[in-house]
Design a protein around this nucleic acid. Structure first.
Lengths: 236, 236
DNA sequence: CCAATCTTGGAACGGCATTCCAGTCATGTC
DNA sequence: GACATGACTGGAATGCCGTTCCAAGATTGG
């Protein structure tokens, strides 16, 4: 049961859970989700696996810590901004959107994290920052849970999917830019079977010219409209 | 290349890509996402790895095929039902919701699949079945893409997250039922820091009594309300 | 200065996806 | 009816992964 001496245990500045998580995030960002291996981690930290396992139980916990760290930073309310609740919700949404765009591995990780432990700190943290604004929006109390859940699910789902798409466009190689990538998908959609895919063919052109952030925000606004038109008082 | 002789190449009924994918789905359903190994697959099919690799390029392709098969079945419009578009959208949403609930591995797989290849058939298939109903709803054409995207992102995101939660409640062991699981999470939420988590604490009780399907549908309805109140003609 | 305890990193283990390859078997040809 | 062909099979081997083990180094308390 780990008798706590209360002393500062670090003999040198060499290794700590913080440094390990930090290195893990860097590795995930630079090499991608599959690039985070204990081998790579030991090399980067110039140590052995045993040292890492002393600070971290296993790879899952490491991924969880990395996820929580990045999410906490992303949903932190920027001080000084006491805007209208709608704007605050947009800000939280974009905060997560940008965080996932910057760290594409977050998309997969968040869905894995949310499913493995709603008792973890990740879900409540996101839930709280959205919920506060829902409350401020004037939604009646018995609608809080449904409204906040819907917003959180949309934001996490849509941000993940948009960011994943963006990641593809980025990784296609130096010669291929986002425009020509969307072109090729758009063209592929336009060539689908006219009977089975009449709608998809019809909107294939939109794919080429759409803006991801705008698209994402439109979804948030749909939900906000839906929430506030259900009899809530209009604050925003 | 691959000169096609036009002959039926199967000498016995023993192995085929179809049978492999089928076995993979069964394995995923019964043992979970981590249970799909080539070892287990060779054992179940009474063969060796080489035989499987003859029909399937790698594990990723196998997962993709499994995903597409299940999704195709889930979003297939039930014939004979020419209901109002709102009802059709709810049906598609519940189709995916139930499919993910029945095959929990779909949640992770869908986000991975959507990101790896939007050129694949999975995205257009879902997009099409939702989009047709959006069109039928009377949404003006320049809103089709945004409305359908928002719905698809919400449905996939929320269904995945709800189903993941449901999967936990199921896997807790024989002694723990869903009710007591939600109780424990609800209690944990109620004990969070009052300053940092005032909202989450306030709705902790709702968690105990909420119905997942109802919750999920509420989100769909928020978006539908948002879509139709943007100046579209009201059909549903 | 010595024991006790925390911390480290190298070596080893079992399991995984994947590859290699020698073989089997239905079939088309003479 | 033999035989060459090519689709198909499955066992053995490879290399990387997460994880565990353990002997030694570092630090601290007495």
């Amino acid at each position: 049961m780990a008798a706590r001496t209360g002393r500062s245990p670090r003999r040198t500045e060499s290794l700590s859970r913080e440094r390990i998580v930090e290195a893990a995030v860097e590795l995930l960002d630079s090499v991608g989700e599959g690039g985070l291996t204990f081998r790579a981690l030991t090399e980067r930290l110039a140590t052995g696996p045993g040292a890492i396992y002393w600070h971290v139980a296993n790879k899952g916990e490491l991924l969880g810590a990395a996820t929580e760290g990045v999410v906490a930073e992303a949903v932190a309310v920027k001080p000084g901004s006491a805007d209208a609740p709608r704007e605050e919700i947009r800000a939280v949404a974009f905060g997560l959107f940008d965080a996932i765009a910057e760290h594409p591995w977050l998309a997969t990780q968040l869905s894995a994290q949310l499913s493995r432990s709603p008792l973890g700190m990740v879900t409540p943290r996101i839930f709280e920052s959205i919920g506060r604004q829902v409350r401020a929006l004037g939604v009646p109390e018995d609608g809080w849970f449904a409204a906040t859940s819907a917003l959180m699910h949309y934001i996490l789902g849509a941000a993940g999917q948009h960011a994943a798409n963006a990641a593809i466009g980025r990784d296609l190689g130096p010669g291929v830019d986002r425009g020509s990538y969307l072109d090729s998908v758009s063209t592929a959609w336009a060539q689908l079977d006219p009977d089975e895919y009449s709608f998809t063919r019809a909107v294939a052109g939109r794919l080429r010219e759409h803006d991801d952030r705008e698209q994402f925000l439109a979804g948030v606004d749909f939900i906000l409209t839906g929430i506030t038109s259900r009899g809530a008082t209009a604050t925003g």
